[in-house]
Amino acid sequence: MSPKTGEKQNLIRRHNLTEIVEHWAIALSGLTLVITGIFELPIAGRYYITDLPGMKWSGDFIFSLELHYAASVIFITVSLFHVVYHVLQGHTGLLPKKGDLKASVEVIKSFLGRGEEPLFHKYLPEQRLAYAGMAVIIAGLIISGLIKTYKNVYAPDMSYALVMWATWVHNVFFVLFVLAFAAHMAAIVIKPNRPLVRSIFTGYISLDYAKARHPLWLEEISPRMQGAPVRGERETPVREGREEKEPVQEDAGACTACNVRDAREAPDPDCEAVRDHQENTSPGRKT
């Protein structure tokens, strides 16, 4: 897990392997669910999708349902794992904070060239809001999907009102899920966010970038991160005079990565970001 070579210099870990696997399991199974869910509508034959090479199956509602079920097993299992695993460890970095709505507006304005964006914790305020929104959507999809699945196998004659609610919650939340997914994709197209993308593949982002845009996160992790030697080129230009104008707060909140309340006094050695940085900057570091 920890970087051992010089390839990782000037990088800081943003996601561990568990988080990366969670993300991609939910993303890929979710995408499969979207596609197979669409093919539960009678459109593949009508719109000649079944005539495309390798897509004949798309007109078979029962085969599509099997794929839908298979993807659901991954989607539901990992979603529930995600909630329990992080709640029990007190990971709260992705939960919305007070003022996130206002801050999100400022961030979006800054993307449009109006005003400066605020300093960030590990996640952007709109990321935290989007996470909460996606959590509600996924919860709705899972609950309604489980009701529909139970009906399909054990209770085709269950209350019509319940079936109707489950069906339409599933359909409406499907649309919301697709819109949220589109917004997620749009967010990584925005230039200032692009350096974050690598972390969902490799777990790491540039330390320069983190210092420039996520100083509150670095402060939470460890005071050693502040003023840490920087090597390599900056990946994102830092706005002029930003560090001086906006000093980091003295009293940082809980570390979202390691759950240490006062990271400066007791940096948690279990925090992978701290550990990685220590290893990268220690004199005996392998290169």
Binding site: L65, I76, L80, F81, L88, G145, L146
Partner: peptide, 26 residues
């Protein structure tokens, strides 16, 4: 639809699997 029942049962079990795995891992 009978051939989908096994997978459907797996879907119905998946919340318990996810919860258990999450508790053990945490």
């Amino acid at each position: 639809m009978a051939k989908t029942d096994t997978l459907a049962n797996s879907v119905l079990l998946s919340p318990a699997i996810g919860l258990t795995a999450g508790i053990l891992a945490a």
